[in-house]
């Protein structure tokens, strides 16, 4: 795969080669096998829109999409993602051309400090897809019917993304706006 070089970090002893595709752009890295996918994005590729909030899979700030599914990138070693397609907040939209979900977060004030926000936005997009795909959740009443695209389903499925500013009501309003759920 033709790739862009690493960000110029000194090559750690024991580093192994890794090819990733991030936001459609191929990368070839030499990476310490102890490096999390989160730290690979932040420290090696300087894609710091993916946030480190706990480094233990407890807060959701590091949420990215891997081959279309959301994961906590801090709980995954970078070397486990050979050949994977990674989508981060930087690939979703730029300040000049925002994705509708990003714009909805601004319109509904779905953040204050903004640190959990990229993870919230990526989770929100994945949640809508998970519901559309018929994946049930803890609050799905009827497991034999498609889960409804409702506020309670969204709240339940977004609960892995903590927001200490507690912008929760506004985040839900933003997601409802984008997904067409009446508030």
């Amino acid at each position: 795969m033709p790739g862009t070089e690493d960000a110029g970090l000194p090559e750690a002893p024991g580093a192994v080669p890794l090819s990733l595709c991030v936001n459609g752009k191929p990368w070839v890295l030499q990476i310490d096998p102890r490096t999390s996918l989160l730290d690979a994005l932040r420290e090696h590729l300087h894609l710091t829109g993916t946030k480190k909030g706990c480094d233990h899979g407890q807060c959701g700030a590091c949420t990215v999409l891997v081959n279309g599914r959301r994961i906590n990138s801090c709980l995954s070693l970078a070397v486990m993602h050979e050949g994977d397609e990674i989508s981060t907040i930087e690939g979703l939209g730029s300040p000049e051309a925002l994705h509708p979900m990003q714009q909805a977060f601004i319109d509904h004030d779905g953040f204050q400090c903004g640190y959990c926000t990229p993870g919230q936005i990526l989770s929100a997009l994945a949640v809508i897809e998970e519901i559309k795909a018929g994946i049930p959740s803890h609050v799905t009443a009827d497991l034999n019917a498609p889960p409804p695209l409702s506020a309670s389903e969204i709240r339940e499925r977004m609960s892995g993304n903590l927001c200490r500013c507690a912008a929760y009501p506004n985040i839900i309003a933003a997601i409802q706006d984008v997904s067409g759920i009446p508030s």
């Binding site: 993916t50 930087e90 730029s94 953040f111 640190y115 990229p118």
Partner: peptide
Amino acid sequence: LSRTDGPLKVSGRARYSAERREMGE
């Protein structure tokens, strides 16, 4: 008014402390 720093924050472009790199690696 919507937050003026909103576009930077929702797009992941706002650089928090450990994300600054003007000093190099």
